[in-house]
Design a binder for these strands. Structure first.
Length: 279
DNA sequence: GGAAGATGACAAG
DNA sequence: TTGTCCTCTTCCC
């Protein structure tokens, strides 16, 4: 679940629940106990996300830096907190809300320097209005790496994970294995603009839906069925199933340890126009 | 009841 | 490139 839109929503929800007041902080699981004690009873100033990173700011230039990784979750709920269930690394609570963090790959108490360092290292985030897509383009159009690899590199572009990667490349009929340097600038601009739209839609709904109206089950006369992660998608985790658009079997492949999904017909293999080989 | 896999990133070699 | 960490769900026995 945790791609950029999830972290953005979390930052918003944490701000709404806790900003401007004092919070109790604890670590029922114990691994964050010493740091939780430092911020316990202090004021939350706000929360912000950058790509998949989340920072909760406390008075005194203290920040809780969280990265959910593959399996982390942060549940923000109204009401008095119940007894912790499972391994709760960090719990924040006030009179009206509580938030339980589990399974995060990063949960650190840091200063402003570290926060600035982390946010300075990531590429442009499509959810930030001041993001500059040209920063990503400068990396992409000089690279021999596959666009499917580049687009998930958080130093190139921040916030896109495996679902958005698969879906946005499908929507633009781009072969995921095509080298970044072979893309045209106009193609990148279209991909970026689409990511801005898709991520904002993800923030609004809390799900990843990427299927265009003309390809919905209703429009195509097929049975409606939500995919496992809760949204309607073209190719993500649909290996072996027919493409919603052309019916070709969706394929998968391991790319640097992550599953890549694509339709070989809608996203035909890119061939360089440069002549190669012998006479 | 247990293994495998998952929307991720890091360190080590 | 491989190994490691973290939790929860799904699938198979």
């Amino acid at each position: 679940m945790p791609e950029g839109h999830t972290l953005y929503r979390l930052a918003r929800d944490l701000s709404e629940a806790f900003a401007g007041g004092l919070v109790r902080a604890s670590s029922p699981q114990g691994r964050f106990a010493a740091d939780a004690a430092v911020i316990d009873g202090t004021a939350v100033l706000g929360a912000e996300s950058g790509g998949k990173h989340l920072f909760v700011e406390f008075a005194g230039d203290r920040f809780v830096h969280v990265h959910l990784g593959l399996i982390g979750k942060w549940d923000v709920r109204p009401g008095p907190a119940p007894d912790p269930i499972g391994a709760v690394r960090l719990r924040l609570e006030n009179a009206t809300s509580y938030a339980d963090l589990r399974g995060a790959i990063i949960c650190d108490l840091v200063g402003r320097d570290r926060r600035d360092q982390v946010l300075g290292r990531i590429g442009p985030d499509p959810l930030r209005p001041d993001a500059d897509p040209d920063r990503a383009w400068q990396r992409i159009h000089r690279s021999d790496r596959a666009i499917g690899d580049l687009i998930m590199d958080q130093e190139v572009l921040a916030g896109v994970g495996n679902v958005y990667r698969a879906e946005v490349l499908f929507r633009h009929r781009i072969d995921p294995l095509r080298p970044g340097r072979t893309l045209r600038r106009s193609q990148w601009k279209a991909v970026w603009d689409d990511l801005v739209d898709l991520l904002h839609e993800g923030v609004r709904t809390g799900r990843i839906d990427t299927v265009r109206p003309e390809h919905t089950p209703e429009a195509m006369g097929r049975a409606a069925r939500k995919d496992d992660h809760g949204g309607e998608v073209y190719v993500y985790r649909r290996t072996g199933q027919p493409c919603h658009v052309c019916g070709t079997t969706i394929r998968t492949k391991d790319l640097k340890g992550r599953n890549l999904f694509w339709c070989p017909r809608c996203q035909p293999r890119f061939r360089s126009r440069a002549k190669v080989g012998g006479p």
